[in-house]
Every structure is written in structure tokens, then in C-alpha cells.
């Protein structure tokens, strides 16, 4: 079971260069890298981009969550190579033939390009993930103008998850004691869904109701609430944001223009 530990704990040791870049800039960097990988269809360019993302990730000493995500996607990329290598509609050039099964160059290239894009996205996102923490992100988002309510919602998601996983374990235990056994057949499995999910949902919603009442009592809805201003730790924020956003717009425009020009 994969719990979102990385976002809950984040990285403790971020004193290096990564800590002077603000979270929004990091997110925009990830977005731009992903968009770049979509603008090119050349495998070599894609490999270069993977390399760039990997270097950023390595020099920031952040790699654990990337390994996880790559593991998660690699099986799918593997099946993509096989399916496209065999059946891609533009397949023409036979590359290899293994015991009568023919792999074609076009399909393999197409799948490899897509696989690289996935890697670029994973690596770029991992850089953001491992070099920021939940509290840093939410503070910064509130500073740059996201509504404090939205920030509250995002924050509480991260705290509610471990609590709910623990509740689920407790409920499963209580129901096992009432005779829901180790589920083997599909019928047993289906029968065991509601006894666990009903108490879990009701308990979770009950806690939400309590939180909501507590928030209201503390005047959370009051329009006079002001965001905390904290000391600014980051460098060149505005320049970074504007520059990277502009790049993103240009890349999207470029891609759209390429797609559009095919139809004309």
C-alpha cells in the first residue's frame, strides 16, 4: 500500500539551492519541461529532455519518489512498446522478428517517444515533490493569493489520509471479529465491502461535520481574515513566474499551430 508519505513529510534537508526557488516556480518548471517533451516528436530530443530532468533531480539530491513513480509506470511503458511495436498502424519497417513475432521500427519509436515523455513528467514532478513540503506550499500559495479556504482544503487532505487508513484497519479488525473471514471467493469479497466502507464513510463524514462546526465557531468564514505575511525566502520570484508562464504559453501555442497546420 502506498501512502503519500512524501507529501506528508516532504524533505527535511532542503537548505541548498533548491530552497531559494519558490514552489510555484518549481511547478512551472515541471510544466514547461512536460510541454517541451510534447512539442517534439524526435526520440533523441526526448532522451535529451529525460537527461536534463534527471540531472536536475540528481543535483538536488531528490530521487526516492521518482523511483517509486517510475516503477509504477514502467510495466505500462513496457506493454506499450510491445503493443505498438507489433500493431502500430504506420508500421512498415521490420526491425526484429522473434520466433515469428515481428516487431516494427515505427511502432517501437512511437512507443519509446511516449515512454520518454512519461519519464520527463515523472522526473520533473518528483523534483517538485521532494524539494517542497506541504506547509511550505500552502503558505506560499496563500501568499500569492490563493483563497485561504482552498489552502485549508488542500492541507486537510494531507492530514486526513493517514487517519483514515488507520480507521480502516480498525474497522476491518472489528468486522473480522464478527465473522467476516479472510476473503477468498469473489462473493465473500463483495460481501465484505459494505461492512467496512459504511462505518468508514460515516466515521469520516462525522469527523468532517465536527471540523466544520469547529471552523464556524472560530469564525473561519469571516471576510476580515487576513493572510499571514511571512519573510520572503525566495529569489527572483516574479521574473521566474512571468518567464516560465510565457514559455508555457509559447509552447502550447506552438504545438497548437503545428496541429492546426496539418489540417490546412
Amino acid at each position: 500500500m502506498n501512502e503519500p508519505n512524501s507529501i506528508l513529510q516532504g524533505s527535511v534537508a532542503h537548505r541548498g539551492w533548491t530552497s531559494v526557488i519558490d514552489p510555484v516556480t518549481k511547478l512551472l518548471m515541471a510544466l514547461d519541461l512536460a510541454l517541451l517533451s510534447f512539442c517534439f516528436t524526435n526520440l533523441l530530443v526526448e532522451i535529451a529532455l529525460v537527461f536534463v530532468a534527471l540531472v536536475i533531480l540528481l543535483i538536488s539530491k531528490a530521487g526516492k519518489s521518482a523511483v517509486h513513480a517510475i516503477e509504477f509506470s514502467s510495466f505500462l511503458i513496457f506493454t506499450m512498446l510491445i503493443i505498438q511495436g507489433l500493431f502500430y498502424s504506420h508500421n512498415q519497417t521490420l526491425l526484429v522478428s522473434v520466433v515469428g513475432i515481428r516487431f516494427y521500427q515505427e511502432g517501437l519509436l512511437y512507443a519509446a517517444t511516449m515512454g520518454c515523455r512519461i519519464f520527463v513528467i515523472i522526473l520533473a514532478t518528483s523534483f517538485f515533490m521532494t524539494t517542497t513540503t506541504v506547509s511550505e506550499n500552502s503558505k506560499y500559495l496563500e501568499q500569492v493569493g490563493l483563497s485561504y479556504k482552498a489552502v485549508y482544503v488542500l492541507m486537510s487532505v494531507c492530514y486526513i489520509l493517514p487517519e483514515m487508513m488507520a480507521n480502516m484497519k480498525k474497522i476491518q479488525m472489528a468486522q473480522r471479529a464478527r465473522g467476516i473471514n479472510q476473503q477468498k471467493t469473489i462473493l465473500e469479497k463483495i460481501k465484505s465491502i459494505l461492512p467496512v466502507l459504511v462505518p468508514l464513510v460515516i466515521k469520516t463524514l462525522d469527523q468532517s461535520m465536527e471540523r466544520s462546526i469547529a471552523l464556524r465557531l472560530r469564525g473561519f468564514n469571516s471576510p476580515h481574515r487576513v493572510a499571514l505575511k511571512s519573510a520572503n525566502l525566495y529569489r527572483h520570484e516574479m521574473v521566474n513566474h512571468r518567464g516560465l508562464s510565457l514559455l508555457a504559453i509559447i509552447l502550447i501555442g506552438w504545438k497548437l499551430w503545428i496541429i492546426g497546420s496539418k489540417f490546412i
Binding site: 480498525k170 474497522i171 479488525m173 472489528a174 471479529a177 462505518p199
Partner: peptide, 26 residues
């Protein structure tokens, strides 16, 4: 056995069904 928190186990639509469900296991 009963546990500390009753809300860890109640899931039936009515009180009567809740009691009957446990019994229907045996």
C-alpha cells in the same frame, strides 16, 4: 467480543438488522 468504538462495526440499515446480521454468520 465488542471493541471500544461502536462506530467501527455498525453498518446495517436498522438496529434489528444489525443484530440479526451478526447471528446470520453462524
Amino acid at each position: 467480543v465488542t471493541f471500544q468504538d461502536p462506530d467501527d462495526q455498525l453498518f446495517n440499515a436498522t438496529v434489528q438488522k444489525e443484530v440479526a446480521w451478526g447471528l446470520s454468520q453462524i
